[in-house]
Write a protein that binds this DNA or RNA. Structure first.
Lengths: 355, 355
DNA sequence: CATCTAAAGTCATACGTATTACCAAGTCAT
DNA sequence: ATGACTTGGTAATACGTATGACTTTAGATG
């Protein structure tokens, strides 16, 4: 017999019934099974190398122990790290994570919760290329959803469903929302960054903002504006750009017309574009222009000069978010968590040029 | 009744038996069910919004429709993209993907296939922090494994298991191995890169190599050496470095002592370190030193000057690999695929300085 | 007309688990 | 001594699907 052992095999080996095995291994035997019997069951399970069959358990329990992770893209070190943290915690608790890359701006019909019409999936799976995202949640049942705020509009639909909506935790979303949220305290991060530059003597600020209208970026902008407003005589100009090097470069050129001495960027990728714009304009970083970012992805260290930025605890974010989701699935109360960012001072910030 | 419909509900609605529904929806009704009946079943399923219960199907079929993805890290745009492609194809075929970040050099005891002793997972899951990777495959059953070559040593154990080893496809591994493999033709990529530089007039080459002993990097080195050997009067020096900016910088300093005019790097990240070394040495890129990379991650475009590199089709790699794995699971024959890289000429390569 | 075959379905069952209801044997209070 | 209660366990069942063994009916064949 080479097939993998079942709980019944364990029962036979331990001289008890299958129910007893199930009860003991679930840890619910207080007052139902004697200690020696429980011990015997554990030993038999160990000896046989028993692992519960998840499919059977899922069927019985009506859950899938699977979590959907909705994220704009994994081709970003930030979300990759978030995923890593989330997946680690999930795995440790017997959950799988299915990722659903959902680029911001994707049409609503492509939402992971909208099933294609008439598509009852067959068990056969002729391998081949697939175009575009596919519908995950429609047939791969899920117990919960971990979603980046960039997918916020797809979630309205989810929440409106009548058939038992899965548990939901939002990532980097507005903590004031009724939905449990785990995010980075970007407002504080921005204030720290401004304080750092103000301390160096800067008063003319430029904000290279991400052009995505989600909480995290809105908040960065507001916090930055508030912090600058508190500085006597300080000015602020702002320009939005898509999160890409090229777009940032163009937008930064516009900002530079106002001759700021410090440029704060909503993301490190934007900072890379700002570097290029500065070079185009013949400005030295940090001699003529200080540049600060947010994220601390690999890029920050690779740029020349190395980028002063705020490190966002991406892996911890994923871990905490998954922990909150599992807690929710376990019947615990929803929690909203905020993690601090860390200012990493490198070589891209310095006192402003004398005038 | 608000619970989700089962195949029995569909059967009642269509006026047939549950078995018939199952047969029809599986698409296996050739000669077993009349066309009108099949039609009725499909309509009923559509009308009720029926989705098969995966847990039940998995239990019945003894499979999990889950694939393990073993990867050194997701905090790298490259593997993030590979994952994205793989997950997309998997999802389209009803498979989930569980990722197992397995940093190169991880101790064998932490292999995803080695279960911790005595750890029969309980269904309860007190949320909380977890340290280090956890054991996925030991209890979360899987049908197949997609593994980066960097996890090669953990796989020996897998293949030696007696209890029905899962199907396996290797990523970026030696195509000569008996294991089905999907990889990028890095040898050809390297030759293309050398040809580009040789065409510009370079004869003194330096190779900034990754210090990981896996097929993909070994092959890059060999192909580079072979290509240089074919150039009359060409020389080559090599230095290995960990895949990180700092380590690459140090190693590049050593290389520069031999005054190469062109530096080829096993990865874009290494190229970033080479940039820093060049700057340290007062060399202009590309005026005094041409630098070429491999990967074409975001970084390549962000560097100044923008990096000439070979674009590896990461997403396509993941897609093809998953397709090959699904084909294998479907009883198809193992296939080994090789995808071409694309040379992307940017601003970091130019003719060598006059002497 | 009797028999055979094909077509079109249905029946029954098993996958492995978790849980509810039940039961036997002591123990204790009255 | 008898009922009530506790302790320690078992039997039975349901979750939803896929499938091999059957059944029925109609048409073809001898």
């Amino acid at each position: 017999m080479t097939r993998r052992p079942t709980s019944r095999d364990v029962a036979v080996a331990a001289g008890v019934s299958q129910s007893t095995v199930s009860i003991v291994l679930a840890g619910k035997w207080a007052g139902r099974v004697s200690a020696p019997t429980a011990q015997a069951v554990h030993e038999a399970a160990e000896r046989l190398g028993y692992r519960p069959n998840l499919a059977a358990r899922n069927l019985r329990l009506g859950q899938t122990r699977t979590v959907l992770f909705v994220v704009p893209t994994l081709t970003s070190p930030f979300f990759g790290a978030v995923y890593t943290g989330a997946a680690r915690v999930a795995a440790a608790h017997g959950f799988g994570v299915v990722v659903y890359p959902w680029p911001a701006g994707t049409a609503r019909e492509r939402s992971p919760f909208a099933a294609p019409r008439g598509a009852v999936p067959a068990p056969s799976h002729p391998a081949g290329a697939v175009e575009g995202p596919s519908w995950v949640a429609s047939w791969k049942e899920i117990d919960g959803v971990l979603a980046s705020s960039m997918a916020a509009d797809a979630l309205a639909e989810l929440l409106a469903r009548d058939d038992g909506s899965p548990a939901l935790v939002m990532l980097d979303s507005d903590p004031a929302d009724p939905v449990p949220t785990v995010n980075v305290d970007v407002a504080e991060s921005m204030r720290t960054l401004v304080a750092h530059l103000a301390g160096l003597g800067h008063r003319r600020f430029g904000h290279l903002a991400a052009d995505i209208d989600v909480w995290t970026f809105r908040t960065r902008g507001e916090a930055l504006a508030a912090a600058v407003a508190e500085l006597p005589g300080a000015t602020l100009v702002r320009q939005a750009a898509p999160i890409a090097v090229d777009g940032a470069r163009t937008a930064a050129h516009v900002l530079l017309r106002d001759a700021p001495t410090a440029l704060l960027c909503d993301a490190d990728v934007l900072a890379a574009g700002a570097y290029k714009a500065a070079r185009d304009a013949g400005l030295d970083v940090p001699g003529d222009l200080s540049i600060g970012g947010i994220d601390d992805i690999l890029l920050a260290e690779a740029l020349e000069p190395e980028l002063t930025t705020v490190r966002l605890p991406a892996e911890a974010l994923g871990e905490r978010a998954m922990a909150a989701l599992l807690e929710l699935l376990d019947g615990g109360r929803p929690q909203t968590v905020s993690l601090p960012g860390d200012l990493v001072v490198r070589a891209s910030t310095a006192p402003p040029p004398d005038r």
